[in-house]
Amino acid sequence: MTLTVPAPAATDVRVKRRPPEGFSTITLLIRRFDPETDAEPYWRDYDVDVLPTDRILDALHTIKWEQDGSLTFRRSCAHGICGSDAMRINGRNRLACKTLVKDLDTTKPIYVEALKGLPLEKDLVVDMEPFFEAYRQVQPFLQAGTTPQNGRERLQSAEDRERFDDTTKCILCAACTTSCPVFWTDGQYFGPAAIVNAHRFIFDSRDDAAQVRLDILNDREGVWRCRTTFNCTEACPRGIQITKAISEVKAATMRSREKVKIA
């Protein structure tokens, strides 16, 4: 009995290969950087078969799992909650897990690169420490001077809760801070995310340390560095009206927080 082994196709598979039913082939241009081997970042292209409903994160997974295991990026929940996979996709900060292929122009390559303004560590990974340092500086935790009655919760009216509802949505993904032209050039600036999280407590009726945070943000590198470019508002994957929140903090440094008008 003889086994005939089919001769391997010698043709260029790239030309002949067709994506499976329903899939289409898209090209990703990824800005790669390995600090151990590269002097500076470089661009590399990858072809990936994707469904229109796939996310850019799925395409990155496909590359990492099937084509190039050295591709490095952060992701955790993959559902837009943990805020790990913020990156620059086609020149704008977005979460890779919330960006669908069908919402991008796939006739052209899709550019994927790391966030701007934070130190690049490897491929799509940046050092988030300056970002979290600014976040810690605004004291993002409840500081109440009173003891709640009868050992119960501090009650709050629905209206008082609504006052800062928008800024409670932040997931600390850094998409806003690293979209800010001021932050790119001035690393000392607190950045939108820190101000958003300060806003969340400044306008909380249960908190008593609003003035402490306002004094911190009234600094030279505080809210007044904001030049209202609205990049942060447009980059936020949670739809927080960030520039509006910063404006309200600006107003609160001049008047008392109760007098800041709500639009």
């Binding site: 241009l29 800005r31 500076e40 970042p41 470089y42 661009w43 590399r44 292209d45 620059r88 086609n90 020149g91 704008r92 550019y111 690169e113 790391a114 701007k116 979209s179 032209p181 030049r227 209202t228 470019t229 609205f230 990049n231 508002t233 447009e234 520039t243």
Partner: peptide, 20 residues
Amino acid sequence: SLPKAPAGTVYRGHEGMWSW
């Protein structure tokens, strides 16, 4: 042709950024 810019692409802001 792969982009040469190792520094990355220009951030694509909207009206707010370009007005600034």
